[in-house]
């Protein structure tokens, strides 16, 4: 019996196990414990949440390994961490730390403006952001085993998350409706490998799990993204920039589970304190838009 590690099945498999769940950004072991206790299926270990990265400006990098390790010690659920786009050495560091998933993320300052990490070379799985189907399939072609629609991180404004998920869904419907003989042309248009486009047509969805990220701030936001077809939710600043993180975390988890039940969403949304302060998209300068990085 020959045991095989780091296969694509094993990588994408962990993402499958997270479906229907909420993954929360945390910066300390205490926050990680709060997330786990609220029912998060995984945590994302960070130096700063996206809203604070925005405020701080400058170059945002991989977190200090000490932060990652202390969070790994604090919880038994999977721990993810972010690397800069294209920074394969940061990724090797996180692999050595045995994080469960690496997020090659536009939230950090890109290290390579041309190439993403060749993710096939790693045994640890990667999740990447996408704004549309072509972008998602390019990342999968590079070895990503999970996708999250990007939204606009650190804004507490769900509008971009909605835009990106709707774009992916609309393009998938288009692929499904396109006859086989025209797929090669469509693949070119999407700038995606034909094989993956064919797979999308067969499945009627992405070949890997697709979570929603970038702007979810309330339980109703989470349920909205689930109703639009997300497999699960990433909450970045939405939990620990809210007035009451414990209550917000619990409420978002329960709204994600019962996304089709407005009564439950009403119940869990009651009296949880104020959500994080939000940002209107029109106030963002082009240089502040994280979603345009690494496309």
């Amino acid at each position: 019996m020959q045991e095989q590690r780091g296969t694509y099945n094993v990588k994408s498999g962990l993402a499958e196990m997270l479906k229907g769940g909420v993954i929360m950004d945390v910066t300390t072991p205490e926050q990680a414990a709060i997330a786990e206790k609220a029912g998060a299926v995984a945590v994302m270990a960070l130096e700063r949440v996206p809203a604070d990265i925005r405020k701080a400006g400058g170059v945002a990098r991989m977190a200090d390994p000490r932060i990652v390790k202390s969070i790994q010690e604090a919880v038994s659920i999977p721990v993810m961490a972010k690397v800069r786009i294209g920074h394969f050495v940061e990724a090797r560091v996180l692999e050595a730390l045995e994080v469960d998933y690496i997020d090659e993320s536009e939230v950090l300052t890109p290290a390579d403006d041309q190439y993403h990490i060749d993710k096939w070379r790693f045994e640890v799985p990667f999740v990447c952001g996408a704004r549309d189907l072509g972008e998602a399939l390019r990342r999968i072609a590079e070895g990503a085993a999970m996708i999250r629609t990007k939204g606009e991180p650190g804004t507490g404004n769900v509008v971009e998350a909605v835009r990106h998920l709707r774009a992916v869904n609309a393009q998938i419907r288009h692929v499904v409706a396109t006859p086989e003989s025209e797929l090669a042309d469509l693949a070119k248009e999407l700038r995606a490998p034909l094989e993956l486009v064919k797979q999308v047509k067969e499945l009627g969805r992405l070949p890997v799990v697709n979570f929603s990220a970038g702007g979810v701030a309330t339980p109703a936001d989470a349920a909205l993204m689930m109703q639009l077809g997300a497999d699960g939710i990433f909450v970045g600043s939405g939990v620990f920039k809210s007035q009451n993180p414990e209550k917000t975390a619990r409420a978002v988890v329960r709204a994600t589970l019962h996304y089709n039940d407005p009564k439950v969403i009403a119940e869990v949304s009651e009296d949880i304190g104020e959500a994080m302060p939000g940002l209107e998209m029109a106030t963002l300068e082009p240089k502040d838009r994280m979603q345009d990085r690494g496309i």
Partner: peptide, 17 residues
């Protein structure tokens, strides 16, 4: 016991009798 084989890096597939 949970996660008894280790973290994700130790996850594997195998043909099992």
């Amino acid at each position: 016991s949970r996660n008894a084989y280790g973290r994700q890096i130790a996850s594997f597939e195998v043909p099992l009798e």
